[in-house]
Amino acid sequence: MSLRCAVVGSGNIGSDLIRKLERSELLIPSLLVGVDPESDGLKRARAAGIEATHEGVQVLLDRADEFDVVFEATSAHVHTLNAPRYLEAGLFALDLTPAAVGPYVVPAVNLDLVAGQRNLNMVTCGGQATVPMVAAISRVTTVEYAEIVSTISSRAAGPGTRANIDEFTETTSDALVKVGGAKRGKAIIVLNPANPPIMMRNTVFAAVDANVDPQAIIDSVNEMVAAVQAYVPGYELVSEPQIDRGAGPRGTTKVSIFLRVAGAGDYLPAYAGNLDIITAASIAAAERHAILTGHTPAGLTLAAGARAATKERI
């Protein structure tokens, strides 16, 4: 039996989640919650035969026993209000806002955190793209400082991102340290209005131990890229990681990694890799929760279930 999932928020993120839930073997899209009866997302969900309401989160809370997982795709402010209500209602919450009520989960790095938590935060799109690279470096050497630059197409930046750009930079910086393992972190976001729209780009810079073995970093990064590709197929290195001895502050070695993220084209076009990477990561977290709670499709072993869940997206 699959996990019954509710998505709160019927904007771009919520709509993309619904499409990905439809494809999962471990998860079922059971309800989409919005507040605007005219929402395109609600109409699309209904057309696909999925229950949708514009009457807000109370509809979900009143029938909480019909659902297992809730994806929050609203705003940090709304999630801060909703989080204790989900907990009380016994729902497992995956938070795609920058509210950071629960600990950060970045599937390629710390998916095991899913066990034993009831509320997990998905960091930010830029965090999902870059934290794995910082973690890949910090597992082979000390990262004194990590800095990331995420450039996204203006068209892929919704009103929530635009109104709260500081939340993006602050939450991402925090995750570079807490999940990536850097001693200090800094995040930068740039919006580019070019037409045709640019693909999401992410650059990771790190100041590391002067005597690091460059090959160890390159091997670790390649391994991590493969781990992310398991749930975000459009994630790739643009070039080989650049390692410059002595080019960082105080004689540290500078590592530069250039990444591109193409979206799966579920709800928005492929250029919106920023949307895809955070929804794909939250699906991966929910699927791990499904497996850990024994919701594996009949006939599949635990490990096979996990593979089946990710394979079809590759």
């Binding site: 630059v149 580019n192 530069s256």
Partner: peptide, 10 residues
């Protein structure tokens, strides 16, 4: 656009 200095190295 401004801010995309990383693209220079790229």
């Amino acid at each position: 656009v401004g801010g995309q200095e990383d693209m220079i190295i790229d």
